[in-house]
Structure formats: structure tokens, C-alpha cells
């Protein structure tokens, strides 16, 4: 969370996603389809979690 505060484009990723060849500090492009259009965001990986609150555990997916 401290890293998120210091990096405006920071993102925390699941350990599952990190195992796909990502590492802390990598840039990540994310496309979101919401309401009526695709929007693309560029993030920087600043941390990792195993389970997110109100989310699906990475290890159960």
C-alpha cells in the first residue's frame, strides 16, 4: 500500500498473475471494457498479494 501511494500508476497483482512472467517494477497494460467502450491503462507492478479482500483467491482460480 505504501508503494501504491508513491506510484500514481501502481498496481498490485495476484501471485498467480506474477507467475506468468511478470516481476515487481514491470509495466503492465490493462484493457477494461466498461459501460460501452474499451479503455486501456498502463500500470506499473508495485506489489503482490495472494488473496484479495472481496476477491477470488489467486490459488483457487
Amino acid at each position: 500500500m505504501n508503494n501504491l501511494a508513491q506510484t500514481s500508476e501502481g498496481i498490485l497483482v495476484s501471485s498467480d498473475l506474477l507467475s506468468q512472467g511478470l516481476k515487481i517494477g514491470d509495466n503492465l497494460r490493462v484493457s477494461v471494457y466498461d459501460t460501452e467502450e474499451y479503455t486501456t491503462f498502463d500500470f506499473k507492478v508495485v506489489g503482490v498479494f495472494d488473496i484479495s479482500p472481496a476477491g477470488i483467491p489467486a490459488r483457487c482460480r
Binding site: L17, Q20, G21, L22, D26, L28, R29, V30, S31, V32, Y33, D34, A54, G55
Partner: peptide, 12 residues
């Protein structure tokens, strides 16, 4: 909370 496509290592 929304679904998204993550592009990494040439894969979605």
C-alpha cells in the same frame, strides 16, 4: 470491480 484483459508477454 470489473473484468479486464491484462497484456503480458504478448498474451492476453
Amino acid at each position: 470491480r470489473t473484468t479486464a484483459d491484462v497484456m503480458t508477454n504478448g498474451r492476453n
